[in-house]
Simulated assay, not measured.
Amino acid sequence: MNLDEIWSPFLNQLATSNTVKSVSKKTITGIPFLYLTVNSDIIKAEIETLIKLEAAKCMRGKQLRMEYSFVREEKNLLVYRVRFLVPQEKMFCCGNLCPDCIRYRN
């Protein structure tokens, strides 16, 4: 699955929010970081709720889950590590007669 199909609408939705002034994604050593510049009167819990809500909208109908963690804060800048995770499923039969073998799916 191409995760750019999830990231683009996710970033666009965050950018159109009233509480966020600017949003950007930077990938450092393969880990995506979300940089949010917010209004000065917004608390961190509101931003985390907004992240979860917008991620849920973008993941609707797809087998994904989102994992995020707070990294740091500087004045009006909040940094989060955000990852969209694809479930690990077997895609082929390995021949070991596994109970969750792809051959047993409908």
Results as ranks from 00 to 15, higher is better:
Thr27Glu: 08
Gln63Gly: 09
Phe10Tyr: 12
Pro9Gly: 09
Leu85Tyr: 01
Asn39Gln: 14
Ala56His: 01
Cys93Gly: 02
Tyr104Met: 08
Asn106Val: 04
Arg65Ala: 09
Phe84Asp: 01
Leu34Asp: 14
Arg65Ser: 13
Glu54Gln: 09
Glu46Gly: 15
Arg81Leu: 09
Phe92Asp: 11
Pro99Lys: 08
Lys75Cys: 12
Tyr35His: 15
Val71Phe: 06
Asp41Arg: 15
Met1Ser: 04
Val71Tyr: 07
Glu67Ala: 04
Tyr68Trp: 15
Asn2Val: 10
Pro32Asp: 01
Val86Gln: 05
Ala15His: 10
Tyr35Ser: 09
Cys93Glu: 02
Ile28Tyr: 08
Asn12Val: 07
Lys62Cys: 02
Ala55Met: 01
Phe92Cys: 04
Lys25Thr: 00
Thr29Trp: 00
Ile102Gln: 02
Phe70Ala: 12
Arg72Phe: 06
Ile31Gln: 12
Cys93Phe: 07
Lys26Phe: 05
Ala45His: 12
Val20Ala: 05
Ala45Gly: 02
Thr16Val: 04
Lys25Phe: 00
Lys62Tyr: 12
Ile42Gln: 13
Val38Tyr: 10
Asn39Thr: 15
Tyr80Thr: 05
Val86Gly: 03
Ile43Ser: 14
Lys57Pro: 00
Gly95Val: 00
Thr16Asp: 13
Ile31Trp: 00
Glu67Thr: 14
Ile43Pro: 02
Tyr104Pro: 09
Glu74Tyr: 15
Arg103Gly: 03
Leu97Met: 11
Glu67Gly: 06
Cys98Leu: 07
Met1Trp: 10
Glu5Asn: 10
Glu48Trp: 07
Asn39Trp: 05
Leu64Asp: 04
Arg60Asp: 01
Asn96Phe: 14
Asn18Arg: 15
Cys98Asp: 02
Gln88Lys: 10
Val20Gly: 06
Phe10His: 02
Pro87Thr: 06
Ser17Tyr: 00
Leu85Cys: 09
Glu48Ile: 01
Cys101Pro: 03
Tyr35Gly: 01
Leu78Pro: 02
Ser22Phe: 11
